[in-house]
Every structure is written in C-alpha cells, then in structure tokens.
C-alpha cells in the first residue's frame, strides 16, 4: 500500500512524516510529495496543514492541478483521505481567518474563530483535551472515549450536517474535533503529537 502525505508548503510537516513512518514501519510505503501522478496512484492521502486557513488554501492553490487532483481522489474515486488541523478545516466551504477564503467544499460548513468568551479562555486552545466520541468512526477503533489528544488552534470547523461529527472536545464551547463522511476523515487535534493514542489513530487510518 502507498500512502502520500501531501507536501504543499503548508508549514512544518516533519512530525506528521515521522509519526506516519513510525506507525507504517516496513509494511506501508509513506511518500511525501505534491506530485500529481504520485497522488493519483496512492491508496490513501494525508492532508496536513499549519498556519492560517488562508495561507494553506493559497499554498494548495499555488500548485497547478493539485485541487482538481485531490478532488478527483476524494470525491470521484472516493479513496480515503485524512485531514489534520488546518488540513481538516479546509474541508469547509469557507474560512474566516485573516479574510474570507473559499475552502475545498467537501463538507459543507464554515471555519470561524473560537468564541473565547471575552478573554475568559486563552487562545490558541493549546494542550491536551478529551475526546467526546459521538459516533463510531473507523479511525477510533480501540480508542476509548475521553482519551486525550493534543490541540493547538484558534479557529473551529462548524459543519452544517451534524451527522458527520465523530467527536467533540469541551473548551469555551463544544468544539468539533473529528469528522467522518464516507471516505473523508479529519481531526482538529494532532494525532502525530498525541502520544500512543494518537499513533493508534494513525494506525487505524493506515489499516482502513
């Protein structure tokens, strides 16, 4: 099996690469690339993302044909894709970080700033928080409810269809932190930095 981590200049992806290689061992080939043919021939794709919604969307759009290739992979061919952090947020129709920016439109909804209740809660939301698993998701196999995951973000993805939500986490409000819609998976938290439970989620995705 070939899994490609999409390298589209979306910030620091070393930890994503390290964790996937650690879990994959020799069984699964992990590629890091933005090559369109390589992406097309992959079995699965990981879409990381750091920085702002706008900077990630801009970086993705600056690679000719990447959007169409990802769209074909995910929406037409329905092959598994995992978005992490801003990579997950980009599934939305629109994001409001920096300025209004169109997202990939794969899961209808918007990305807006977390309401920190007039400074009562610190932003970014940084650190370990608990998963409230609200529906069974394939990437949560053997993951206990209330497991801790590592978060770092100031914006949240609010999907229109609540049925896609697989987990939330409690901060200043209930924040959507994981979705599953058919072949599309996304996590707001960083499985690559979430210790053994995080690596288990990666393992579950690789073994779908």
């Amino acid at each position: 099996m070939n899994v490609t981590i999409v390298d589209y200049n979306s910030g620091n992806i070393s930890s994503v690469i390290n964790s996937f290689k650690e879990v994959a061992k020799e069984k699964i080939k992990i590629e890091v690339s933005s090559d369109l043919d390589k992406i097309k021939s992959s079995d699965k794709i990981v879409l990381p993302g750091q920085g702002s919604f706008k900077s990630c969307v801009d970086a993705l759009n600056s690679i000719d044909g990447l959007f169409d290739t990802l769209n074909e992979f995910t929406i037409i061919n329905k092959k598994p894709l995992l978005g992490i952090c801003v990579g997950f947020q980009m599934f939305a129709d629109v994001g409001y970080e920096e300025t209004e920016t169109q997202g990939l439109g794969w899961i209808s909804g918007e990305v807006s700033k977390i309401d920190n209740q007039n400074g009562k809660f610190k932003l970014p939301h940084i650190g370990w928080n608990e998963l409230n698993i609200v529906k069974t998701s394939q990437i949560f196999r053997d993951i206990k409810n209330k497991s801790h995951m590592y978060f770092v973000h100031s914006y949240e993805f609010i999907p229109k269809d609540k049925n896609v939500i697989s987990a939330t986490t409690d901060y200043s409000s209930s924040i959507v932190c994981s979705v599953e819609k058919e072949n599309i998976f996304g996590t707001q938290f960083h499985p690559e930095k979430s210790d053994k439970e995080g690596l288990k989620i990666i393992d579950n995705f690789l073994n779908l």
Partner: peptide, 8 residues
C-alpha cells in the same frame, strides 16, 4: 509567526 503560524 506569519510564516510558520503562531502555534510554533
């Protein structure tokens, strides 16, 4: 922070 994101 602009280039790499505030998170780091």
């Amino acid at each position: 922070s602009k280039k790499f994101g505030s998170q780091c």
